[in-house]
């Protein structure tokens, strides 16, 4: 009996030490569920994720989805081989390459024209697909409006994003990862227009003028009636929304023990060059632009290393 006392004392000391060590660790280190392998990809977003007009353009439709060239969901099949399409090496392709094709799913919830008000339905779809990995690239159409009166306030934007994030938090399987990318600085895209004009047999100004009659979106940046101050205002909203996205992601990652939340601002700080902008609408990323988005977001993202 006497010999048991030192052992009991030792065990008690060890237990106390362990408890103190655990308490000293940040909650996120020990409380997160194991991260799931991203086999079921679900992309939330807008026309950029749909790769509108990236490499193919139907002049009779004007908004042409080029899903094979999507930075998130892009793929390669017979037609992409035949036509020598750009291999964007999307997140979808990289996941298959890294983790294999078994049980792979590639869902695109993103829809051209969607904005933060559509986060709810799109994220509900991600939940219904039981996604392991959700990419979120939304907000371009919040700043790209027909009218400055339609750009949401910070409070509205935050409420929309928060509501969407809540759906993911409460609905995604434990261990899932949510990766949010900052809104592209659309002012930088607008700046490239004059350089693209004429070079590829298009007139960006003519295309952008159609914002006046509602054919083409994003009058708040592209309308020919805008002053420089108008465009700078739109840009300031762009930056404000990115700050909200970054803050919310940080908040959710700290508080949500079941999921992994990450944000990158690489997409918003990218300086696009003309070849990375659609030669058809002078605005959306081209296939090369999508390829760059894929590479940079993947490298900086949760599964890049």
């Amino acid at each position: 009996m006497q010999s048991a006392r030192p052992i009991r004392r030792f065990a008690l000391a060890a237990l106390m030490t362990t408890l103190i060590a655990l308490l000293a660790l940040p909650a996120s280190v020990f409380a997160k569920d194991p991260q799931r392998t991203p086999r079921r990809l679900s992309s939330v977003g807008d026309s950029i994720t749909e790769a509108i007009n990236a490499e193919e353009f139907n002049p009779f439709v004007f908004i042409t989805p080029n899903h094979w060239a999507s930075w998130a969901n892009g793929y390669r099949g017979f037609w992409e081989w035949l036509l020598g399409r750009t291999n964007v090496n999307s997140h979808n392709q990289r996941i298959t390459s890294k983790y294999g094709s078994s049980s792979r799913k590639n869902y695109m919830e993103a829809l051209s024209g969607a904005d933060s008000f559509d986060l709810g339905p799109q994220m509900t779809a991600s939940v219904s697909h039981a996604a392991d990995y959700v990419t979120v690239f939304m907000g371009h159409n919040d700043v790209c409006q027909n009218n400055f009166a339609d750009i949401p306030t910070d409070a509205e934007f935050e409420a929309n994003v928060r509501a969407g994030f809540e759906r993911l938090r409460t609905g995604l399987p434990n261990g899932a990862t949510i990766y949010t990318a900052g809104i592209v600085d659309i002012y930088k895209l607008w700046q490239l227009g004059p350089q693209l004009s004429g070079a590829l047999g298009i007139s960006c100004e003519v295309i952008w003028a159609t914002t006046l009659i509602g054919i083409y979106p994003c009058g708040t940046m592209l309308s020919p009636t805008n002053s420089e101050a108008d465009r700078q205002y739109t840009r300031s909203r762009n930056a404000a929304f990115n700050a909200i996205l970054a803050d919310l992601v940080a908040e959710y990652d700290a508080a949500d023990t079941h999921h992994y939340w990450e944000f990158t601002d690489l997409t918003s700080t990218t300086n696009f060059v003309p070849s990375e902008v659609s030669p058809f609408d002078c605005f959306h990323p081209s296939a090369r632009g999508q390829k760059r988005l894929a590479a940079e977001t993947w490298t900086a993202g949760p599964f890049g290393n």
Binding site: F148, I151, P152, S227, E228, A229, D230, Q232, Y233, S236
Partner: peptide, 21 residues
């Protein structure tokens, strides 16, 4: 009300940006 708030923000910021530009 939301539209008024947005427009107020826009007009105010536009004035500042105009002066800066």
């Amino acid at each position: 009300a939301a539209a008024r708030e947005r427009v107020a923000q826009y007009l105010s910021e536009r004035g500042r940006l105009d002066r800066r530009i």
